[in-house]
Simulated scan of single mutants.
Amino acid sequence: MSEENNNLGDDLKKGAEDALDGAKDAAKKATEKAGDFAEEAKETAEEFVEEVKETFGSDNGENKKVLAGILGIVLGAFGVHKFILGYNKEGFILLGIFIAGFILSCFLIGYLFVWVPGVIGLIEGIIYLTKSDDEFYQTYQVGKKPWF
């Protein structure tokens, strides 16, 4: 029985060594695969960053034009389109007129103040969207024309 236990002990020892070698090989392969995956992910991220820079970092102002135009039409009363273009003073003026009109709406004069900034935003949004990209960029981003 003692020899049987020795053979069993040797078999277990050999099995444990084989399992350890297999685990080391698997870990090595997993490390290589993870390194390859990390390298591919890094390359993909760099390509994505370049693509975003090309799309949103362009000098023609196209993306600000579309964003400012749509926000001017939809949220023009709040002056959001002015804030997008960097005209904070004008944005606060539109927002202030809207808020004052909302507060004064219990008196009939307040309704005039509520819709005026909305109409201004609607008109400006349409103007922004109908201008060419270069004309929009030169007028509103380089020339800093704040109204219409």
Rank of each mutant, 00 (worst) to 15 (best):
G61E: 06
E50G: 12
G76K: 04
I93G: 04
L95P: 08
E46T: 04
F48Q: 08
E39P: 00
E47V: 09
A77I: 12
L95Y: 10
K89Y: 15
V49M: 06
I73V: 14
K29F: 07
G96H: 09
H81L: 11
E47N: 07
F37D: 15
A38W: 00
N60D: 15
E40Q: 11
G96A: 10
A26D: 12
E46A: 03
F107L: 15
D21N: 13
F48I: 10
G101Q: 00
E43Y: 05
G79W: 12
L85M: 14
Y87W: 09
T31F: 06
L67S: 04
L85N: 05
K89H: 09
F102W: 08
V52R: 01
F107G: 07
E32V: 13
E90Y: 10
G72N: 06
K64P: 04
E54M: 08
I84L: 08
S58D: 04
D25Y: 13
A34R: 05
G96D: 02
A30R: 11
I73D: 02
F83P: 00
A23T: 06
G79F: 14
F102T: 14
A77N: 07
K64Q: 10
F98E: 03
L85P: 06
Y87R: 13
G22F: 12
L95F: 14
F56G: 04
F98P: 04
E39Y: 09
D59C: 00
K28Q: 13
I97T: 11
F107A: 15
V74H: 03
A68W: 01
I73N: 00
G101I: 01
E40P: 00
L108N: 05
E54N: 13
V80R: 10
G76N: 04
A68M: 03
K53Q: 07
T55S: 08
H81E: 11
T31N: 15
G61M: 05
E40W: 02
I99Q: 02
V49D: 06
V66D: 09
F102N: 03
A26R: 14
N60S: 11
E54H: 08
G22L: 10
N63Y: 06
E54F: 03
I93S: 04
L95W: 11
A34C: 02
A38L: 08
V80A: 07
A23I: 07
A38T: 13
G35V: 12
A68G: 04
V49R: 08
T44H: 09
E62N: 12
T55G: 01
K24S: 00
K64W: 00
I103C: 02
F83V: 07
E39M: 08
C106P: 01
L85W: 03
K89Q: 13
A100H: 02
F102P: 01
F48H: 06
A100D: 03
L85F: 07
L95H: 09
C106V: 10
G61W: 03
